[in-house]
Simulated assay, not measured.
Amino acid sequence: MSDESGLSRRSFLSRLGAVGVATVAPAVAQPVSAAPVALLDAPAPEAIENAVPVSLKVNGKVLDLKIDPRTSLLDCLRETASLTGTKKGCDHGQCGACTVHVNGRRVNSCLSLALMHEGDEITTIEGLGTPENMHPMQASFVEHDGYQCGYCTSGQIMSAVALLKEPCGPADADVKELMSGNICRCGAYPNIVAAIQAVRHTA
């Protein structure tokens, strides 16, 4: 079909495409003359408004920090102290991925303000052991495949280590009850319980 001017639809679309290519091609063909922006030229991060000083003892080291007074212990550890082994899962105290020890007791660090812990002894997964010298619970998790994706593992291990010092019956069901605050979305629960029981039986 063609209109009164004698231009068919196919001819019109072909010409339109050619015009589009001709318009874009010069811009694409031009060499990039501007030098890439160096990361060092990026503006420095802005100072935190209303920041307050806080001194936290984490894994045996004193950290003098300046933080927003509303900062959770979890965000302070991850974002300010760069201790990213503690994971942010739900950020509502429901999954246990952010579990750390405060004065030897397990806490959900997402539910606690960092300012509340000045002078406390805080232990994260980084302070529990190293790849060369693992804590017995870490070694047991490896031996029993107590993880799959690994995202919840640091919180699971921190809770499991705390459990060793808590009143807990001998049965697997007792361990499951005390570990119920830690969720594994992969479903590695049987192996997690086996890892914990192995440590309990050798302690």
Rank of each mutant, 00 (worst) to 15 (best):
S55P: 01
T71L: 14
T130C: 07
T71A: 15
R105G: 05
I122E: 03
D68F: 09
I125V: 12
D68Q: 10
L111T: 10
R70E: 13
T71Y: 15
C95S: 04
A139S: 11
L115V: 15
H135E: 08
N108C: 15
L115G: 07
C90T: 07
R78H: 05
C152I: 04
Y151P: 02
V100M: 00
G60Y: 09
Q138M: 02
E118T: 11
D91A: 06
S82G: 10
L115W: 08
C152R: 05
C95F: 04
H135L: 01
G96E: 04
S112N: 15
E126T: 09
E143K: 15
A114L: 00
G85V: 06
K61G: 02
V58I: 11
T123Q: 14
E126C: 09
M134D: 02
G96H: 02
D75Q: 13
H144Q: 06
T84K: 12
C149W: 07
R70M: 13
T99N: 08
F141D: 07
G146D: 00
G150Q: 00
S55Q: 12
P136Q: 01
V62R: 13
L83P: 08
G93P: 01
G60S: 02
T124H: 05
I125A: 11
L56K: 03
L65P: 06
C152Q: 07
A139F: 04
C98Q: 06
T99C: 06
V142Q: 12
G127L: 04
G96R: 08
G104Y: 04
C98G: 07
N108K: 15
K87F: 11
C110D: 00
L77E: 05
V62T: 13
R70Y: 14
T124S: 01
A139C: 09
H92L: 06
P136K: 05
N133C: 13
G129H: 13
G60N: 11
L65C: 09
V142A: 11
D68Y: 05
P131L: 02
C95A: 03
V62K: 12
L83D: 11
L63N: 14
C152M: 08
S140C: 05
D75R: 13
M134E: 02
G60M: 01
A81S: 13
S82R: 12
K66T: 14
K87H: 14
S55W: 06
H135K: 10
K66Y: 13
H144S: 04
S112E: 15
C152V: 03
L111V: 11
V100F: 10
A81G: 09
G96A: 00
F141L: 08
T123H: 13
G104P: 02
V54H: 08
G146L: 09
E132F: 12
G129W: 13
Q94T: 14
C76Y: 08
